[in-house]
């Protein structure tokens, strides 16, 4: 690898982009473990809308999170293109895998940090702490998600507490 390539490697970062109810989102590709075509998951009763159920990922049980519900919308409708993105999030000193339901996975994109604009203070349908920034791609905007906030295990558990009873 020549130095110029190293340069670009340093300055840009890879993101996985996906679509959820017509909006484009991106997550840091380093957090992505794998993408599953929609598989049947086991629903877990008495859980809030954000937690849909659990799947068996090669012997370990992974919770499936409904992102749309987490963003304050209704539950994601399942269709043929529905995917589960498996993401690794830190849980104290370990990594915990979580699955998130999305309508469709688009692509892996290199994004230059300089292209990233700060999250709009208002006018977004998302809570501002969920967003690290916004990137313009042609006609569309892509929202970069702050995974540590969106998939905060404590908060997911807490919302189970308040909504579940």
């Amino acid at each position: 690898m020549n130095e110029a390539a190293l340069e670009t490697e340093k300055s840009t970062q890879q993101y996985l982009t996906f679509v959820l109810s017509g909006e484009n989102y991106a997550v840091d590709s380093l957090s992505v473990r794998e993408i599953l075509e929609y598989t049947r998951f086991t629903p877990v009763p008495r859980m809030p809308a954000t937690v849909r159920g659990a799947i068996n990922l090669r012997g370990s049980v992974v919770p499936v999170i409904d992102l749309q519900a987490r963003f304050g919308g209704s539950r994601t409708e399942l269709n043929k293109r529905t995917c589960i993105i498996i993401l690794d999030v830190p849980d104290e000193d370990r990594q915990q895998s979580l699955g998130v339901l999305v309508d469709a996975v688009s692509a892996v994109r290199e994004i230059d940090p300089e292209e990233i604009q700060p999250a709009p203070a208002f006018g977004s349908h998302l809570r501002s702490e969920f967003i690290t920034g916004v990137v313009r791609m042609g006609e569309r905007f892509i929202t970069l998600l702050a995974l540590d906030q969106v998939l905060d295990l404590e908060a997911l558990g807490k919302s189970a507490n308040s909504e579940g009873s």
Binding site: V51, A54, V61, L98, A160, G164
Partner: peptide
Amino acid sequence: SKVFSACP
């Protein structure tokens, strides 16, 4: 998982 810890 912690996510389910509050599930009765």
